[in-house]
Structures are given as C-alpha cells and as structure tokens.
Simulated assay, not measured.
Amino acid sequence: MTDSPNSATAAVTLVSGPAGTGSIDDFELFYARRALGRFRARLGRQGLLDLLAADIDEGNAFLRESARASDGGYTGGTTVLSTQGLGAGEFVAWMDKAFADENVLLAAQPEHYLMVGQANGSVHVVENVGPHICSFYLGDWAAEAMAWADDADELLPKADFPYKKATNLFLADGTIVGRVLIQFGETDDGFTSSLTVYLPASCPQDVLDHHLRHFAVEFRNWITAAAAARA
C-alpha cells in the first residue's frame, strides 16, 4: 500500500441513489469525520496520549535526531491558498479566537490529536509530521518576536501581506525542531494565504511534502469554518 494520496485507481461515478448533492468523496469525508470525532470523544485527551505514547516517543526521537544532524539548518516549503468570499482580516481575527477552542483546532485535520493552549502562551500540539506522530509546542505567534522571520527568504512585502504570524516549533526539552511563517494578504474578492513550514534540513523531502499537504487540509478547513461562523 503506497503512502501517497495520489495513487492510481479505477474511475467510479455516482449515477443515482442518494438524496441531496455531493460526491462519493463527500460522503466518505462526512462519515470519516463522524467516526474520528466519536473515537476522540470516547478516548479523551489523556486516552489519546496513552494510546499514542510509543508513537510519540519514536516521532520525537526522529525530530530530535533530525535537529541534531541539521545543526541549525532548515529546509522550507510553502503552500499557497486562494480564498474567495472572506477577508484576510476576518480570518485572522477568527483564528486568534479559535486557538482557545481545542475542538475547532482538532476538527481541521484528521491527524490532529491534541492542540491545547498553555499558561505561558504556547500551544501543545500532537500531530503527524510526515509519517511520524510528534508532540511539540508552538511558541509565540507574534512575527516581531522572531528575528529569524525578518530574514526569511519567504517573507513577503508587508504592504501586500500585512497579516503575519511566526513561531518556533520545539520539544518539551526546548530543542527547536522547526519553524512556521504564515502570511495573509487581501485580494479583490478574498485573500491569499502563504503558509511556510521549515523542518530540519536532514529531514527527507517526503516529510516536508506531507506537511505542505497537511497545511492545505487544515487551513482550508479553518477558513471554511471561519466563513460559516460569520454567516
């Protein structure tokens, strides 16, 4: 079984039967989300952590060794999304509030297992980094607090992308294992999202590629949730 979401498959078309609109993919997504939500609710936060403990130990060992081998070097990649019907300022305001609601954060991506704000302003995250389930923290989201962001090649002009957030990703022992720089700019009918992740340079390319897809899924879902909340 391949790990790629683009595996070749036979073409199947829904001709008739179910009431309402939507494709078979839409139906599957609905049922998958419902099943996942049930398991999360039944297991609870600590139950999930206990279930994934061995995976987390392995994933964090991978990140820690990758950071050591990379000696401070990072490789970055960027996912760009175009949104119509919602403004960047509206979305950023919604997102700032959403980070206080773990249910909203978890619902955005099937491989979100825990996203909990901490008293010091960081966020504890358990999610996949490529095939690895990892437990790490997002630091201060304020771009001005991150000197590295000012020198990033991916930094876009503030006139076009006025909404910027940046943070380090670090393990519980303080080891920095990545960075994130997200930027949002208004367009005539919505906004553009520039979502950059930096992983230790020694990480395989497919780990970075997976996280770029991860970004596409979670931010698409957060954006549609923000639009739904406004309606």
Score class of each variant (00 low, 15 high):
Leu181Cys: 11
Asp140Gly: 06
Ala145Ile: 08
Ala226Lys: 02
Met1Gly: 08
Leu63Gly: 05
Leu29Gly: 12
Ala229His: 15
Arg68Val: 11
Asp3Tyr: 09
Ala143Glu: 15
Met146Thr: 09
Val129Gly: 05
Trp94Tyr: 15
Phe215His: 15
His210Lys: 09
Phe27Met: 09
Asn128Glu: 05
Thr196Leu: 11
Ile56His: 14
Tyr198Leu: 08
Ala229Phe: 07
Ala10Cys: 10
Ser202Trp: 06
Gly130Thr: 13
Gly121Ala: 11
Val116Arg: 10
Asp25His: 08
Ala142Glu: 14
Pro204Asn: 08
Asn60Pro: 05
Leu199Val: 15
Asp57Gln: 05
Arg38His: 07
Phe184Tyr: 15
Ala201Tyr: 03
Phe39His: 14
Val104Gly: 01
Ala11Asn: 10
Ala108Tyr: 02
Gln118Ser: 06
Phe30Lys: 13
Arg68Thr: 10
Gly85Arg: 12
Glu127Asp: 13
Val207Gly: 15
Ser23Cys: 04
Leu14Lys: 15
His211Cys: 15
Thr175Ala: 01
Leu212Asp: 00
Gln183Glu: 07
Phe39Asp: 13
Glu58Thr: 14
Ser7Asp: 14
Ile133Gln: 09
Ser202Pro: 10
Arg38Met: 05
Ser16Met: 00
Met146Phe: 07
Leu181Pro: 13
Pro157Thr: 12
Tyr198Lys: 07
Cys203Asp: 05
Ser82Gln: 10
Gln183Trp: 02
Pro18Tyr: 03
Thr78Leu: 01
Val15Glu: 06
Tyr74Lys: 10
Asp188Trp: 02
Thr192Cys: 02
Val197His: 07
His132Thr: 00
Ala41Phe: 04
Gly77Lys: 13
Ala19Ser: 09
Val116Gly: 00
Gly117Leu: 09
Phe99Ala: 07
Lys158Leu: 05
Glu65Trp: 00
Ala145Cys: 14
Pro18Ala: 01
Thr167Gly: 05
Trp94Val: 10
Ser194Trp: 06
Asp151Ile: 01
Leu86Arg: 03
Gly85Lys: 06
Pro110Trp: 08
Ala172Asn: 13
Arg179Tyr: 07
Ala88Leu: 05
Tyr31Leu: 04
Gly44Ile: 02
Arg40Ile: 13
Lys164Asn: 03
Leu114Lys: 07
Asn128Pro: 00
Val129Met: 11
Ala231Trp: 00
Thr9Asp: 14
Gly89Leu: 01
Leu29Val: 14
Leu51Lys: 01
Tyr74Arg: 11
Ala145Val: 10
Gly22Asn: 11
Phe30Leu: 13
Ser202Gln: 14
Gly178Ser: 01
Gly59Thr: 04
Asp3Gln: 09
Pro131Ser: 03
